[in-house]
């Protein structure tokens, strides 16, 4: 598969991480997202109509949403079928956190873009940023009470991969996790997964 990629993009990192965790080889095609904003040019929008990265290509298939990319990589490359759902309930719960990653957590992505790239970045509101972090932290603590370290079920799934980059890059976004011990433990557990590879901006725990 081909990943249209930017090294500093948290959304692209989701897919790089999924490939690394599965030990699957892929081809990276760097796109000049910063400073050139090449992802928003008309030519690139023929691949990605909203002008967003990452874009995943597999043969004649083109996928332009990070969460959809995660689903696709896991469904096609995970022989153990452990990263995707095994029951109707898991399906629904994974879908919930994929939606959080593509919705409320965008506030974290936006805060990071503003700190990194100034007025070049996504200027959407930071309202709800702490609410999103708090809800995630609560979820992890609830899961811990059930004996799991992961967002859904008893093992890491694509839901964890979808959420990990924005939370792990919290310092870039100017967010302290001092008050969120559940998330800190979850980050620590995630980093110990076989195949895990960091990206710049992820603080060592």
């Amino acid at each position: 598969m081909i990943l249209y990629d930017h090294v500093l993009s948290a959304d692209c990192y989701k897919l790089r991480l999924m490939f690394d965790l599965l030990g699957t080889a892929y081809e990276r095609r760097p796109v000049d997202m910063h400073p050139g904003r090449a992802h928003q040019r008309p030519g690139f929008r023929t691949l990605s109509p909203f002008g967003r990265l990452p874009v995943l290509q597999d043969g004649s298939r083109t996928l332009w949403d990070a969460q959809a990319g995660l689903v696709y990589i896991a469904e096609s490359c995970d022989a153990s079928a452990s990263w995707t759902a095994r029951s109707a309930e898991e399906h629904a719960n994974i879908q919930t956190w994929l939606q959080v990653a593509g919705g409320p957590l965008r506030t974290v992505t936006a805060a990071r873009a503003r700190n990194l790239f100034g007025d070049v970045g996504d200027m959407s509101s930071e309202d709800g940023l702490l609410e999103a972090i708090t809800i995630l932290d609560d979820r992890i603590v609830e899961q811990e009470l059930r004996g799991s370290s992961w967002l859904v079920s008893d093992r890491p799934t694509i839901a964890d991969v979808a959420v990990f980059p924005d939370i792990a890059l919290h310092e870039d976004a100017g967010i302290s996790l001092d008050g969120f011990s559940g998330l800190r433990r979850w980050l620590g557990a995630f980093r110990k997964l076989p195949g895990f590879a960091p990206m710049p901006g992820i603080a060592s725990m």
Partner: peptide
């Protein structure tokens, strides 16, 4: 390519950035 040169340098600088801010 321009893209790979850029991302090589940007990756290095972002590794420095988190150290600098701390």
């Amino acid at each position: 390519s321009d893209e790979s040169l850029l991302q090589f340098q940007q990756e290095i600088f972002l590794q420095d950035r988190i150290i600098l801010e701390n």
